[in-house]
């Protein structure tokens, strides 16, 4: 059972490595959006410190969403997806492999990049560590929930915009607890509660979302 997950993950990672431009474009989108905010609201350090968690998290949501349409679209185009659906393994496990690969090439680099951008916002070391940790914990949930949206909009007119309409409202809890943890740390309160809830969201999304996405894929392939 784990074999199929690993095999799909390895395949997707290999494909991503051969098209690194796609991956870096998403990362630079993240960097640019985060850098635009100080230009829009002014360089005052106190204000920026207060805004940083929200801005970084919203930018991470948008960057993750940008990379979602490609999650299944290329495989649909060259027929791989049909072959995977016909394979004797549950399609949910295939999707799980793709979700994990998606996280490794989008969520993980975003989380590792975040502390550097956080310095631009004059965040303290504690806040930077918490920010990175929340992104590490929260982005798997984004990949998981996003897979449902990507599968539902597969091959649909105007899929990209539609995807954001479907997925962003479902991202709200992750945003609230992710940015809230950093806020709580900055305010001197503990962030353990936020971390627990974020972990719960991540496990629930990665565990259940692939099966919903698999059901949506089967409809798209009919």
């Amino acid at each position: 059972m784990l074999n199929i997950v690993m095999a799909v993950m390895r395949r997707d990672l290999k494909l991503a490595m051969r098209r690194q431009a796609d991956m870096t474009a998403v990362l630079f989108f993240f960097v640019i959006v985060v850098s635009l905010f100080p230009l829009g609201i002014g360089p005052e350090a106190n204000l920026l410190r207060k805004l940083a968690p929200g801005v970084l998290w919203v930018a991470a949501l948008l960057a993750t969403m940008l990379s979602l349409p490609r999650l299944f679209a290329d495989d649909l185009k060259d027929g791989t997806l049909e072959q995977l659906a016909l394979a004797p393994h549950p399609l949910g496990l295939v999707v799980l492999g793709k979700v994990l690969a998606h996280w490794l090439v989008s969520g993980l680099p975003l989380a590792l990049l975040a502390p550097i951008l956080g310095i631009q916002y004059d965040l303290s070391t504690d806040a930077l560590i918490v920010l990175t940790a929340t992104l590490l914990l929260g982005t798997p949930a984004l990949s998981g929930i996003g897979a449902i949206g990507a599968a539902l909009t597969l091959g649909v007119r105007g899929g990209g915009v539609l995807l954001s309409l479907l997925v962003l409202p479902l991202y709200i809890p992750v945003l609230i607890f992710g940015a809230g943890a950093v806020d709580a740390t900055v305010a001197g309160l503990g962030a353990e509660g936020h971390f627990s809830l974020l972990a719960a969201l991540a496990f629930a999304s990665v565990g259940f979302a692939p099966w919903a996405a698999a059901a949506a894929l089967k409809i798209a392939l009919e």
Binding site: V156, R157, G158, L162, L165, L166, P169
Partner: peptide, 11 residues
């Protein structure tokens, strides 16, 4: 709105 947009985008 997401539901309406999705269902009306699929022919």
């Amino acid at each position: 709105i997401g539901f309406i947009a999705l269902t009306s985008a699929i022919d």
